[in-house]
């Protein structure tokens, strides 16, 4: 009986000794795959593009950050989301609205990629979404943890927004 107990204890000890080795290896693999920064392709010929992103944050996480141009919805940025939108070269004015309206003036040039970050600031009643110019380095730092909003999702969202009006 003692021998059986010793063998059983040895088996458990072996299992415990092996499992910590295999788990971190898996975790590392997972971490490596999620740490890869998003590679943004060049914009379509003759157009420029803007990468709108919103890093994940506890502050105002339930609030949306709807980016509009001339009142038309370009896309909504949920917590930890991003999307890429191509634009014709020229001046563009983007807005986001809650308690107050925040405006961002941009001049888009063909072949260029721009980055715009949405953050939620403190408001009197509710949080205030703020769209601000950003850069590739900031996006690269956060992009591994961001989730892409596809063109299909954006189009559905735009159609829904247009129907409301």
């Amino acid at each position: 009986m003692k021998r059986v107990k010793i063998i059983a204890l040895a088996a458990v000890a072996t299992a415990l000794a092996v499992s910590p080795v295999s788990t971190p290896a898996f975790a590392k693999e997972k971490a490596a795959s999620t740490k890869t920064a998003v590679v943004v392709e060049a914009p379509p010929a003759g157009q420029g593009q803007v990468v709108f992103f919103r890093p994940g944050s506890m502050m105002g996480m339930a609030l949306g950050c709807n980016v509009r141009e001339n009142g038309k919805l370009i896309g909504g940025l949920g917590n930890g989301k991003y999307f890429i939108q191509a634009f014709q070269p020229g001046k563009h004015v983007f807005t986001t609205h809650s308690e107050t309206t925040d405006t961002l003036n941009m001049e888009i040039e063909s072949g260029e990629t721009y980055y715009v970050k949405c953050g939620i600031g403190m408001g009197v009643v509710a949080g205030r979404p703020n769209i601000a110019p950003s850069d590739k380095a900031t996006f690269d730092e956060k992009s591994a943890k961001l989730k892409l909003k596809t063109i299909d999702q954006l189009e559905k969202e735009r159609a829904k927004d247009a129907a409301k009006k």
């Binding site: 502050m59 980055y115 403190m122 950003s134």
Partner: peptide, 30 residues
């Protein structure tokens, strides 16, 4: 295609946009 910095290789894609860092950590941040 204005970019900040003296890097002429074109790899510096910082763009000509600067936003100052903001600190929002508490209700006092208002």
């Amino acid at each position: 295609s204005l970019k900040y910095g003296a890097d002429m290789t074109g790899d510096n894609n910082a763009g000509a946009a600067i936003v100052a860092s903001a600190a929002i950590s508490s209700a006092l941040a208002l």
